[in-house]
Design a protein around this nucleic acid. Structure first.
Length: 310
RNA sequence: GGUACCAUAGCUCAGUAGGUAGAGCAACGGACUGAAAAUCCGUGUGUCCCUGGUUCGAUUCCGGGUGGUACCA
């Protein structure tokens, strides 16, 4: 298939905080450019987690054509997907799309996933190391924490609360240090980042409105189904936001009103954290082309096209 | 209409034996390369309802307003 346009970027990124209409914009742009979409969303990778993650497949149907989407609906709920697996999958999918001479659009709000792809974070597939594990198994918790701290800065307490994760972290760091010379699997590629921007207050209003809609359209059932299918409440809680607060509500730990208020606030705070990540990317040297969210998608696509062919 | 109590941060409230005030939540800023929708760190943003009085000095004490709550009519 021939590309309709000759776009000077290997990858177009559409991002922005939650509830800003990224998916639909990316889908319409993809339709326009005959492109395919690669998701950059740490929760939409899970099957059957749809309403709570905002995974609306109807968004991808543009003018009767279903836009191909990758890295969405990849694994079962309960599985611990992570940046490494995302990056690995991204490289694979991206290469395959390029090979077919099709434009790739990455769309999602997980800043770290986007950065892992664009900056080509150095992440190696780390095999299980039985001899190291045998050694670590005999050590006290604090010794393990000290070892990890000597390998890299500790910034995430969840790395050290669970012994299993702690050992895995040491295993990864040890291996990466021993194989520091390994090359990234992908040569550098060109990219351009667009992000949808609204005033914070408007984002909050959109989030609250969307939350009401989700609750009215079966989100509680979705959580109940997931629990019934055997996923532990603790796992669902760790997925955060909708999955956390609805699980607490469904298991009777908080009232409906508490659930609504706390969840609403938590999503607002999440949007803020996403913005912090985007600003950090800008400080690190990424150029983000901000697009006024108030414009309709046709106007946004015009602005994107101007930038693409400027 | 009467009596009592209350009025302090965006919200719920604490406090100042008179020297312009602080908690929780919210908000805001930040960190973060193997669960990132996770996890963690930092910041007080204020006519202390208004108005007279006492006082060197009133958010604090006294009087009068205004608003709210409860009870009595």
């Amino acid at each position: 298939m021939q590309k309709k346009y000759d776009i000077p970027y290997d990858l177009i990124v559409i991002t922005g905080p939650t509830a800003t209409g990224k998916t639909r914009l990316a889908a319409e742009l993809a339709h326009h450019l005959q492109a395919e979409i690669i998701g950059a969303d740490s929760r939409q990778v899970y099957r059957n987690m749809d309403i709570g993650t905002g995974k609306d497949m109807a968004d991808y149907l543009v003018n009767g054509r279903m836009i191909p989407v990758h890295i969405v609906d990849m694994v079962e709920p309960g599985y611990e997907f992570n940046v490494f697996e995302f990056q690995e999958e991204f490289f694979k999918v991206f290469k395959h799309i390029k090979k077919r001479n099709i434009q790739a659009i990455m769309c999602g709000g997980t800043g770290m996933y986007i950065e892992a792809a664009l900056a080509e974070y150095k992440m190696l597939k780390v095999p299980y190391n039985p001899s190291l594990r045998k050694e670590l198994d005999e050590m006290a918790h604090q010794e393990l924490v000290d070892i990890l701290a000597s390998l890299r800065p500790l910034h995430n307490t969840t790395d050290i609360t669970l012994r299993e994760r702690l050992i895995r972290a040491i295993e990864i760091e040890t291996y990466q240090k021993q194989h520091a010379d390994k090359e990234n699997p992908l040569p550098p590629f060109s990219n351009i980042i667009f992000a949808i921007d609204f005033p914070r207050q408007i984002i909050r209003e959109r989030i609250t409105q969307r939350l009401k809609t989700r609750l009215e359209t079966g989100m509680i059932d979705e959580i109940q189904r997931l629990l019934k299918s055997g996923i532990k409440p603790a796992q669902l809680i760790f997925y955060g936001l909708e999955y956390k607060y609805l699980t607490l509500y469904v298991t009777g730990e908080i009232t409906y009103n508490e659930m609504f208020e706390k969840l609403n606030t938590a999503i607002h705070q999440f949007a803020k954290r996403q913005m912090t990540w985007f600003r950090r990317m800008e400080k690190k040297g990424f150029t983000i082309n901000w697009i006024d969210g108030m414009l309709d998608n046709t106007q946004k696509i015009e602005i994107i096209k101007e930038k693409l062919f400027a």
